Computed example of a mutant assay.
Amino acid sequence: MSDGQPGPPFEPPLEDFFTPESGVPSEVLRDACHGRSSLTCGYNCLFVNTPDGMAVIDTGLGASFLGYGEYIKPLVGQLEDGMTSAGLSRANLAAVVFTHLHQDHSRGSIWSGELTFPAATAYAHALEVAFWSGTVDLPQAQPHLEAARETIRLFGERLRAFEYEAEVLPGVRTLAAPGHTPGHSAVLLESQGERLLCVGDTFYDPLQLTNPSWATPWDLDLAASIASRRHLLERAADERLMVHAYHLPFPGLGRVQRNGAAFTWHPLTLGMSDSPAPTTEH
């Protein structure tokens, strides 16, 4: 379910995501993007019906957000409208699972100054909670600090700190994906023999599949984020997992295939059947 997806002319420039400081020289980016200059940035929240109740993985930016400029306010904060259309109630949501506590993943749960989902138990990695609760000096973390700390404060005792490889809800298991933030997590969903891998901010654009070593300015540990991306892409390709990518165009669902030492993204659009993709040996 989308919390919003700014389109042209409000799509962010690729050069904001892939910079010389994050290891992508300007000429390398120019040659790789083949004339494309912007990135379609979705905010794809995933609802999961578990035996313990309905859960959501990440919650979007929430309403009345101005952090990226006035233009963004009407373009995000749409999660509640989507829930209403789907017959879901904020009051009945049982759990919120955070891949990490950046504002575009957590603010939707606290944007009004109160809990958006008042009955929900929240889950975030222990390192994530510790990092945002402590002294945060990194400049690239500052825009997210207020929302992260408010999320921790408002959920209080109902925020459960997990470790990697924990089954936080039936069929909902956390996987290691550190680097973007200290406790950044992927989530593996399993039900009736089917699996879905939620990768959070492991990648923002298919360019990071064809260039897995590309990091972004928001990756706090560049080397760790690259290692996590390679590991998850390898697993997704080798196990033919359906993948949920938070920031790819809605609905952010697709599959990953190996292409030599790199990978390719094969999106699943709404209405398509999900037949296994053909494989090619390299």
Rank of each mutant, 00 (worst) to 15 (best):
9 P>R: 09
11 E>R: 12
12 P>I: 04
18 F>R: 06
21 E>H: 10
21 E>K: 11
27 E>D: 14
30 R>L: 15
30 R>T: 09
38 S>I: 00
46 L>Y: 00
47 F>T: 03
50 T>V: 02
55 A>Y: 02
56 V>L: 04
58 D>V: 00
59 T>S: 13
59 T>C: 15
60 G>S: 07
63 A>L: 01
64 S>G: 00
67 G>H: 05
69 G>H: 10
72 I>Y: 09
87 G>F: 04
97 V>A: 11
104 D>W: 05
104 D>V: 03
120 A>W: 03
130 A>S: 09
139 P>D: 04
140 Q>A: 14
153 R>M: 11
155 F>H: 15
158 R>V: 03
163 E>Y: 06
164 Y>L: 14
166 A>N: 13
170 P>G: 01
183 G>M: 04
187 V>R: 11
187 V>E: 14
193 G>V: 11
196 L>A: 12
197 L>F: 15
201 D>N: 06
203 F>S: 01
203 F>Q: 01
211 N>W: 08
211 N>Q: 14
222 L>M: 10
222 L>E: 09
223 A>D: 14
224 A>T: 11
231 H>N: 08
233 L>R: 10
234 E>S: 12
240 R>P: 00
246 Y>G: 07
247 H>N: 08
248 L>K: 08
256 V>E: 06
258 R>H: 15
259 N>M: 13
260 G>M: 04
261 A>T: 15
268 L>S: 06
269 T>Q: 03
271 G>V: 08
271 G>C: 09
278 P>G: 07
